[in-house]
């Protein structure tokens, strides 16, 4: 309880410190470059100088945090990936050589690739279909809200929810997991799904699809509503049916949004870690890069060199999306 109180105090202190910084720096700036009680000419010069400095005062705390917590670590991770487990001795590309020879890494890479193919595709497709359908029913907003809900649930919480669904009880006893109960109802045999290689990967992916579909749906639904009605009306007049309108008129107009959704989910997939950690911890050939990295960070006291090397691999996979995003953002700014 005392922690909670101290957190409230810290929150107030933090806000006060931010406020104080901004007020104080602004006051200091006005002291150094006064605009009152100076000659008109000096006033103009001072206003100009203050205007030159003020943006950097506004930006300084943010840039400080970004530099310390994101930019510096990226550089440092690349450096550490060339050093040994404690980060003391330079080992060249030994960590990468080890990585590419390691079976665990190859398995993770393959699984990650599978995740990258399946999860963004399924989430985007389902999101699009659900967005199109819920727009057509009166209670669509309630439906959207419920499909969107898993977004609020932590990956760990979602893992528990789905572990309960995949729960396996030995043969002969009543299955309390929904999946096995359905399988038995349909005449099949219950299976410990999480341990069956290859398919178990898909069962883990279902969890992320379940979470991400709502995100895809919300964004695509807004894009669908943004389609000019004239285009749809023209197609109706030309005798197109619903399916044709959807695939030939609506989809082409929202391609860029689909790409945004796809890439955003791709990034999430690359970072997925909690689900694998909670469901299997990489056993039964379900290892992925992010979980492997976490594992090496602490395994046997922690191997920072190898951990950093895996992180760099994840980063390399992210870079194309990063470049694409920056280009899109630049184009958007120029367009305005």
């Amino acid at each position: 309880m005392t922690h909670l109180l101290s957190s409230l105090v810290i929150m107030l202190l933090g806000v006060a410190a931010c406020g104080f910084y901004f007020v104080f720096s602004n006051w200091l700036l006005l002291r150094i470059f006064p605009v009152r009680r100076v000659s008109l000419q000096q006033q103009a010069v001072n206003i100009q100088r203050a205007a030159l400095i003020r943006p950097w005062l506004f930006l300084a705390p943010a840039l400080g945090f970004l530099g310390l917590y994101l930019v510096y670590p990226v550089v440092e991770s690349v450096r550490l990936s060339l050093f040994d487990r404690g980060g003391d001795a330079f080992v060249g590309v030994a960590n990468y050589r080890w990585l590419f020879a390691s079976e665990e890494f190859q398995e993770s890479l393959l699984n990650n690739l599978l995740w990258l193919l399946v999860v963004p595709a399924c989430s985007t497709f389902l999101g699009l279909v659900i967005a199109a359908m819920t727009d057509k029913v009166r209670w669509g907003n309630i439906a959207k809200s419920l499909v969107f809900m898993p977004m609020a649930i932590s990956f760990i919480g979602a893992s528990i929810i789905w572990k309960f669904i995949y729960e396996y009880r030995g043969e002969g006893s009543e299955q309390i997991g929904l999946l096995n109960a359905v399988v038995e109802y349909l005449g099949g045999t219950a299976q410990p799904w999480i341990t069956l290689h290859f398919w178990n990967n898909l069962f883990l992916m279902v969890i992320l699809v379940w979470i991400q579909t709502g995100f895809a749906m919300v964004i695509l639904s807004a894009a669908l509503r943004g389609i000019p009605e004239e285009t749809v009306e023209a197609a109706v007049l030309d005798g197109a049916n619903g399916v044709q309108i959807f695939f030939k008129i609506m989809i082409p107009q929202i391609w860029s949004t689909i790409a945004v959704v796809w890439t955003t989910i791709t990034i999430t997939v690359l970072k997925v870690f909690d689900i694998v950690l909670a469901m299997t911890n990489g056993q039964w050939k379900t290892q992925v890069l992010a979980n492997m990295m976490y594992d090496w960070m602490f395994r046997g006291g922690g191997d920072f060199g190898r951990g950093a090397a895996i992180a760099v691999i994840i980063m390399v996979a992210v870079i194309p999306v990063m470049i694409w995003n920056i280009r899109q953002a630049n184009a958007q700014m120029e367009g305005r």
Binding site: L70, P73, E76, L270, G307, M322
Partner: peptide
């Protein structure tokens, strides 16, 4: 915009 997608994993070990 670039930092938006930097994976957290990059930051963990240095920090």
């Amino acid at each position: 915009v670039g930092l938006l997608v930097v994976p957290l994993q990059m930051s963990l070990i240095p920090l």
